[in-house]
């Protein structure tokens, strides 16, 4: 197995609290890894450390065989890791298109001269990106493509989630981190969104790490699972293996 992402002894402390405790993680290309665990078990912290929002206290992270432990969020994004947030972090006053373009930052020309003077070239780049954004939105949910220039604050919650996933996808990352994409949505909406994500994953050959509380979702779409408790990995394997694990049942499913 060639690991796309591998973490060794990854640790993050907040004062006396150990949020991540010597975590070892291996993710191979093409996996959909479900990350589960009770509230406060360090799942989101893992994402935050991975994406450089919090520096790691110890341990190392390698991505495509390169050390990325100390990269800033900007650097992590540039090498092809994109994420969504648990609480929606779209720029609500901006249009859907603008939000998607924030996600496509690394592929756009941000030179002053290009943007202020070479307007024809800029216009071409805009047109290309409008087409690309429409295409991506259509894969997800065709009616959404028609609302490309509406403010993100004016579209329903499930569409905002879709836009957030698209914002992470539009730069064509290699690894996608989804932090509870189903939060605040109904069961049906969640299933719908997950189907969309799975379809895109197959189409683009993405690797995904997914934080999720809804076990049916985990069962349905993940190829592998990892269970955290108090910042430690207590089990990993397929969903079937993990859900049989006694430790997991005690810590997470609440069984004696």
């Amino acid at each position: 197995m060639t690991a796309l992402l591998s973490c060794r002894g990854l640790t993050r402390t907040f004062g006396g609290l150990v949020a991540l405790d010597a975590l070892d993680v291996e993710v191979a290309e093409g996996w959909v890894l479900g990350l589960i665990g009770p509230n406060g078990s360090g799942k989101t912290t893992f994402f935050n450390v991975l994406t450089g929002l919090f520096p790691a206290s110890a341990g190392q992270i390698r991505f495509e065989n390169a050390e990325i432990t100390d990269l800033k969020p900007q650097g992590v994004y540039r090498i092809g890791i994109a994420r969504t947030f648990q609480r929606s972090r779209l720029c609500l006053p901006l249009s859907v298109f603008d939000n998607l373009m924030v996600g496509n930052h690394r592929n756009l020309n941000h030179g002053l001269w290009f943007n202020l003077v070479r307007r024809q070239a800029l216009r071409r780049q805009v047109e290309e990106n409008v087409a690309a954004a429409r295409e991506l939105l259509t894969i997800f949910h065709a009616p959404l493509a028609a609302r490309l220039f509406e403010p993100a604050g004016g579209i329903p919650m499930i569409d905002r989630r879709r836009v957030e996933v698209c914002r992470a996808l539009i730069s064509r990352p290699k690894l996608l981190l989804l932090d509870e994409p189903s939060a605040g949505m109904t069961h049906e909406e969640t299933l719908q969104l997950m189907d969309d994500i799975l379809r895109v994953q197959r189409k683009l050959g993405l690797t995904i790490i997914l934080i999720e509380h809804e076990m049916s979702v985990i069962e349905r779409i993940t190829s592998h699972c990892m269970v955290l408790n108090y910042g430690r990995k207590i089990a990993e394997g397929t969903y079937a293996q993990v859900s049989r694990n006694l430790l997991v049942r005690q810590a997470y499913l609440g069984l004696e």
Partner: peptide, 15 residues
């Protein structure tokens, strides 16, 4: 605009 509205999200997308 993204820098003004949400620095954290902006930084996560390379700004």
């Amino acid at each position: 605009d993204a820098v003004r509205l949400d620095e954290i999200a902006a930084a996560t997308f390379g700004l």
